[in-house]
């Protein structure tokens, strides 16, 4: 039997120190980690359980923004009244993620750190080539089943899609990740695969996510998360869009716009080209649809995932238009 040790961290510092040791991994809700251990992908020597750390599950919302502790449960954040009213896209991204059971277990920190659903990544017994798992071993997905793979941000080494919903919403609203004292924009926290797809985050050994912080904005207040998939619930996105909008006083001219895409890219994908094209424009369906096409500028498909290139701009356009209707 593969023995590993289990350690219950007494403090954030203790957890960070323990997790810095080789072979150690933080354990939060376990809904990703235990799953990957069963697949043979994660093989920790030490599990550092952080679920008992005090104070890390707080959700504080004030005029400046929201600070959400790393151990807050997905379900709690989704249902939080102030999150719902001031950051609807965050709440919607969460309640449309996974299942009620998983949302009750899973934490915000663990959610950001969830791994790709690439089937080749998840099956080492059958597919030894995976650059993300085993740098330099190749990529089994390219030329194989690619329906769920990314069309944006891919490299020759890896085309795995980042599946999380929450981070997509966070990146739209310039949220930051707190790694103790160090802070990083969510956009900078996630890395493109490039030649090192095994490095997914700008987190260093001995660091731990302690919280995320989302600044308040008018765009965040009028925001939504639209998630499209074949199954109505409990499925990752075929394409999704986190969109926030702020109008000028006329209620029709776009002052500020935030657009991020999920389900189509190797990391949470901010679509600044769409934002820039539409700022200052009047909300008209034709204009919106045309500008939304910019969301997939530079997209590259691998056969079966081609539909994402057509789908993503339509999701963006619908989300923007939907927000316009409520103006």
């Amino acid at each position: 039997m593969r023995d590993f040790s289990y350690l219950r961290a007494g403090s954030v510092d203790a957890a960070r120190q323990a997790a810095a040791l080789p072979g150690a991994m933080l354990l939060a809700g376990g809904t990703t980690l235990i799953d990957l251990a069963k697949c043979g992908v994660a093989e920790p020597d030490t599990l550092v359980d952080i679920t008992h750390l005090k104070g890390l599950d707080r959700i504080d919302v004030n005029e400046r923004g929201a600070t959400i502790g790393a151990l807050a449960k997905m379900g709690h954040v989704a249902d939080h009244a102030d999150i719902k009213s001031r950051f609807p896209a965050i709440s919607e991204a969460l309640w449309q993620a996974a299942s009620a059971q998983i949302r009750n277990m899973a934490t915000i920190g663990g959610n950001l750190m969830q791994r790709t659903r690439c089937p080749y990544f998840r099956d080492p017994a059958n597919f030894s080539a995976c650059n993300k798992r085993e740098p330099g071993s190749g990529c089994s997905a390219i030329g194989g089943v690619t329906r769920g793979h990314a069309v944006l941000g891919t490299s020759e080494a890896c085309i795995a899609m980042y599946p999380g919903d929450l981070a997509t919403a966070l990146v739209a609203f310039d949220a930051t990740v707190h790694l103790g004292e160090r802070r990083l924009l969510v956009d900078d926290f996630f890395l493109l695969p490039g030649t090192t797809p095994d490095r997914e985050h700008a987190i260093k050994p001995g660091e731990m996510i302690t919280a995320i912080e989302i600044p308040s904005s008018a765009a965040a207040r009028r925001s939504t998360y639209l998630k499209i998939r074949d199954r109505q619930s409990y499925e990752f996105a075929a394409a999704s869009a986190a969109v926030g909008i702020e109008f000028e006083a006329d209620g029709r001219t776009i002052r500020d716009l935030r657009v991020a895409l999920g389900g189509v890219a190797t990391k949470p994908w901010r679509a600044r080209a769409v934002e820039d094209a539409l700022k200052g424009k009047v909300l008209e369906p034709e204009t919106i649809r045309a500008a939304s096409l910019l969301a997939v500028e530079g997209a590259v498909d691998h056969g079966a995932n081609h539909y994402k290139i057509e789908l993503a701009p339509r999701v963006v356009a619908r989300a923007i238009l939907k927000l316009g209707e409520t103006a």
Partner: peptide, 25 residues
Amino acid sequence: GIMDRRHGRIVNNNLADYLVPTNAD
């Protein structure tokens, strides 16, 4: 069942990837 035709193997061999309807459907 989604087949990797190079390996002759079904790759969505779990209930997260082989989709059956949920109540919402």
